[in-house]
Simulated scan of single mutants.
Amino acid sequence: MYTPPAFRDDDKGSLRATIRAARLANFVTATADGPFATPLPLFLDESEGEHGVIYGHLARANPQWRVSPVGDGLAIFMGPDAYVTPSWYATKQETGKVVPTWNYVAVHAHGPVEFFDDPGRLLEVVNRLTDLHEGERASPWAVSDAPPDFVQAQLRGIVGLRMPIARLEGKRKMSQNRSAADRAGVAAGLASSERESDRGVASLIPS
């Protein structure tokens, strides 16, 4: 990921927070047949290794797991993002030398990829993913709510993914390269947007 120094995020707590907050990631592998990419819900186990371990699962019919990766895999986690119009910049009125851009947060996790189909390990991954995304519901659904034989049949249709994180890259592009007046204009413009996601980004613009 191309990351100019002004936008680099090296804070481990910030990087992990972005990973935890991302509800859907993109899992990418390079292979001799070309790149493969699959959108997946993934979770981070912070108790394993220096940077943690990424877990998830793919459909067994997905060819990505059958083709040996060349080098490390890549999990891409996107945080808040918003379009930035040059109309919000004070510089527009001063010189007119402005162009549109996009503000966003992204984390790239790299590491060796392991696929597995052991039923016990798969069930643990499915349980943890389910508990993670059902946990905030008033009446959470649990895997154990489904008949055991049905669950076992479903497990036969998936393959587990384990990726110990060898390297993390973080990027937080929030108008840090603009003047204080331009940043204030971006924050005000986003804060007045009808999009909830834009208003969330507004709070991340440094003053």
Results as ranks from 00 to 15, higher is better:
residue 1 M to W: 04
residue 2 Y to L: 09
residue 4 P to G: 10
residue 4 P to F: 08
residue 5 P to N: 10
residue 5 P to K: 14
residue 6 A to W: 12
residue 6 A to Q: 14
residue 6 A to T: 12
residue 7 F to P: 05
residue 7 F to H: 14
residue 8 R to V: 14
residue 12 K to G: 05
residue 13 G to K: 06
residue 14 S to V: 00
residue 14 S to L: 00
residue 15 L to R: 15
residue 15 L to Y: 07
residue 17 A to N: 03
residue 20 R to Q: 09
residue 23 R to M: 10
residue 24 L to G: 05
residue 26 N to T: 15
residue 27 F to L: 15
residue 29 T to F: 10
residue 31 T to L: 08
residue 31 T to I: 08
residue 34 G to D: 10
residue 36 F to K: 14
residue 37 A to P: 04
residue 37 A to G: 14
residue 38 T to R: 15
residue 40 L to H: 12
residue 41 P to Y: 12
residue 41 P to T: 12
residue 43 F to H: 15
residue 44 L to W: 10
residue 45 D to F: 09
residue 46 E to F: 03
residue 47 S to M: 10
residue 48 E to W: 04
residue 49 G to Y: 05
residue 51 H to M: 07
residue 51 H to K: 09
residue 51 H to G: 00
residue 52 G to R: 07
residue 53 V to Q: 11
residue 53 V to W: 08
residue 56 G to S: 12
residue 56 G to A: 11
residue 57 H to T: 08
residue 60 R to T: 04
residue 62 N to V: 10
residue 66 R to C: 08
residue 69 P to S: 04
residue 69 P to D: 05
residue 69 P to G: 01
residue 70 V to D: 13
residue 70 V to T: 15
residue 74 L to H: 05
residue 75 A to M: 05
residue 76 I to T: 13
residue 78 M to E: 13
residue 81 D to R: 04
residue 81 D to P: 02
residue 84 V to A: 05
residue 85 T to Y: 01
residue 87 S to N: 07
residue 88 W to G: 03
residue 88 W to C: 01
residue 89 Y to M: 05
residue 90 A to M: 00
residue 98 V to N: 01
residue 100 P to Q: 00
residue 102 W to Y: 08
residue 103 N to M: 05
residue 104 Y to G: 05
residue 104 Y to S: 04
residue 106 A to S: 12
residue 107 V to I: 09
residue 109 A to N: 00
residue 110 H to G: 05
residue 111 G to F: 01
residue 114 E to S: 10
residue 115 F to M: 09
residue 116 F to C: 01
residue 116 F to E: 02
residue 116 F to M: 08
residue 117 D to Y: 02
residue 118 D to W: 01
residue 118 D to M: 02
residue 118 D to A: 08
residue 119 P to Y: 00
residue 119 P to V: 01
residue 119 P to F: 03
residue 122 L to E: 02
residue 123 L to D: 07
residue 125 V to A: 04
residue 126 V to G: 03
residue 133 H to R: 07
residue 133 H to I: 01
residue 134 E to S: 02
residue 137 R to E: 13
residue 138 A to S: 13
residue 138 A to W: 00
residue 139 S to M: 06
residue 140 P to R: 11
residue 141 W to P: 07
residue 142 A to E: 10
residue 144 S to C: 03
residue 145 D to Q: 11
residue 146 A to T: 04
residue 149 D to S: 13
residue 151 V to Y: 05
residue 152 Q to R: 15
residue 153 A to Q: 14
residue 154 Q to K: 11
residue 156 R to T: 13
residue 156 R to F: 03
residue 161 L to T: 11
residue 166 A to L: 08
residue 167 R to I: 03
residue 168 L to M: 13
residue 170 G to M: 03
residue 175 S to A: 14
residue 175 S to P: 02
residue 175 S to E: 09
residue 176 Q to I: 07
residue 177 N to M: 03
residue 177 N to W: 00
residue 178 R to Y: 12
residue 185 G to F: 04
residue 185 G to C: 03
residue 187 A to R: 08
residue 188 A to E: 14
residue 188 A to M: 04
residue 191 A to Q: 03
residue 192 S to G: 13
residue 193 S to I: 06
residue 193 S to M: 00
residue 193 S to R: 04
residue 195 R to I: 00
residue 196 E to F: 06
residue 196 E to C: 04
residue 197 S to H: 12
residue 198 D to G: 06
residue 199 R to H: 06
residue 200 G to I: 02
residue 203 S to F: 00
residue 204 L to D: 08
residue 204 L to Y: 06
residue 204 L to C: 02
residue 207 S to Y: 05
